[in-house]
Design a protein around this nucleic acid. Structure first.
Lengths: 334, 334
DNA sequence: TTGTAGGCGTTATCAG
DNA sequence: CTGATAACGCCTACAA
């Protein structure tokens, strides 16, 4: 009684395979009693329809892929939770891929997904805007794709982002209002759409405040903790800014470490604000002023867009923009 | 040129489907040149073998499932990263499931996995040790299962844990050495193996230190932030402990919030130590003394055990125990 | 080295 | 309401 397939079960019940099959599909006509009988016996024999046979027939995997650059931060883990929850409610399964910000990995993962493994993809981009041919292939195969947070502008698919420009603009003004005159902007990849948009908000806010823009205050950092640490140490000791605007949480964290080690008082010597979904921002020393994105909602919306496409069978191009919230805390108090 | 299958490609190349198939399988004999020709043309036509057809033939999904109670914390996200990395290196894909600590969800997820969707499962348990029949079913189907961190003791499968008893023992002594005489133990589910083991370390350390054990100092908390907040508030104001040992990170965080709100000075009034993989523990106010588990390594080892089973085709029962490290910081300084 | 043919387990179509 | 049959797309004996 090791491996039961539909034939075994049918034979056991003296029915045809089609009848048995019908018992498991919702739609088809079948006598309620025989259905019960079949399901009961199936439970006894521990039978479940083979997934791969069904998928092969139906050309549908009921699986989606989630691709993120990073996992170890509250933003992505909350977003993933949101996606996974929606997916499960729809009866879908979620494959997860972490690229560690490696563009090549992103490419090979995507290529590996084009064989029917998934019905759709939700992703937050890793690399810079270079060769996106691998994504165009997806379109040819009618594989729905939804971006969230980190998007590629040249790819025309559904996107869910936050009001980054506006948030950056306001965050910069927040620092100015707190008395900052020399604000550095820490960014990891300003050519990536998200870095670029956020920087523009910073630049325009300075202009609005009548502070001349100085490109030396835009600091290119790294994904690598140590490298960023060195860069930021140097910036804080030589440029000596009175304000730090971190485009991503990780850089704010590194800045905190640097300040701790160099004994630079936050917020007296330098004020810090950052995009961050860190749940314990209030517990940091000092508590961190954040631009908090609705991470979970981003995930939920992304998933909903994907299912909209999946259910309609048509591509979806909506661009949903959610609002972030600036939460002032001690790191920027005057 | 929309949908290419192996037949199309074969016809296009004036070859048989078997030859084409061989070009994609590593093993079989095939002329190097024809192989090249096939692969080249396949690339042009954008052909990839259909996954579900292959899986159906080979009865193998090259997919594993990762089931965790929670995602939004550094411990699980690091562990998942470790697992996912190993899996990808082995050519496997990883499905992710988050139970939110709901036992019923765990059951239904597992049941949903028994239809060939995955070749193996890695999980950290959600519920209490009650009815584990659904897991025994897995064994009948020869589906390998590996537990990490949170295990069910009555299920005899491969497990990867940390030296929780020893760590708890030492952590408790650490508090005593720092001058604590009235130490509360915060736990979420002491009937769950992990809560139980950690509590035992606490109990035995008290005995070793000659401090009588008082069961009122073992505080049952909740997964829900607010509920725990209320419980811990009450504890800190009525019992007035001078030491807090949190069995899981979440409870230490809540304790911090409570202390912040009630103006209870850490570490002067109360010292806090916790199991935690929080990367920014040094940046908290005050920095948090942690028992840090090698989260990523736990994941890696779990994945390796699973693949050991998958590759040998035999069940694996190894129990790997990794060491945690106590990192003293200001929250327990005297 | 290549081709032929049967079957992996399901489900949809069409008859009965 | 139920049964027979033909795909779904691929892989592997086996034959050539």
């Amino acid at each position: 009684m090791d491996k039961v397939d539909i034939k075994e079960l049918a034979k056991d019940l003296k029915l045809s395979t089609s009848t048995v099959s019908r018992a498991f599909r919702g739609n088809s006509d079948i006598n309620a009693q025989t259905k019960e009988r079949i399901l009961a016996r199936a439970r006894e024999l521990n039978y479940q329809p083979n997934l791969y046979a069904s998928n092969l027939r139906e050309k549908k995997s009921n699986t989606i892929a989630i691709i993120v650059p990073e996992l170890a931060n509250d933003f992505f883990s909350q977003a993933i939770k949101g996606i996974e929850r929606v997916a499960r409610e729809k009866g879908y399964h979620s494959l997860i891929y972490v690229t560690d910000d490696e563009y090549q990995l992103e490419v090979s993962i995507i290529n590996d997904l084009s064989n029917g493994r998934v019905d759709g993809i939700i992703m937050s981009a890793s690399g810079e805007a270079k060769d996106h041919n691998y994504l165009k292939q997806l379109k040819k195969r009618h594989m729905p794709l939804v971006f969230f947070d980190r998007v590629y502008d040249d790819i025309d698919v559904a996107k869910v982002t936050t009001n980054d420009y506006e948030s950056s603009f306001n965050a910069t003004r927040h620092l100015v209002a707190a008395g900052c005159k020399k604000i550095v902007f820490l960014v990891i990849n300003k050519s990536l759409s998200i870095g670029n948009v956020r920087m523009q908000g910073y630049v325009d806010a300075l202009a609005a405040e009548g502070i001349p823009f100085n490109k030396d205050l835009v600091i290119d950092c790294s994904n690598d903790h140590k490298k960023s640490y060195n860069i930021i140490s140097k910036v804080l000791t030589t440029i000596k800014p009175d304000g730090v605007f971190a485009a991503v949480e990780r850089l704010a964290i590194v800045s905190y470490y640097v300040c701790q080690d160099l004994n630079i008082n936050i917020p007296k010597k330098v004020k810090i604000i950052s995009f961050s979904s860190l749940e314990i921002a209030p517990l940091l020393s000092p508590s961190l002023t954040t631009i908090t994105q609705p991470a979970r909602d981003l995930g939920v919306h992304a998933a909903q867009l994907l299912f909209k496409s999946l259910e309609s069978g048509a591509p979806v191009h909506d661009h949903v923009v959610l609002k972030s919230k600036i939460i002032p805390r001690k790191s920027t108090s005057s």
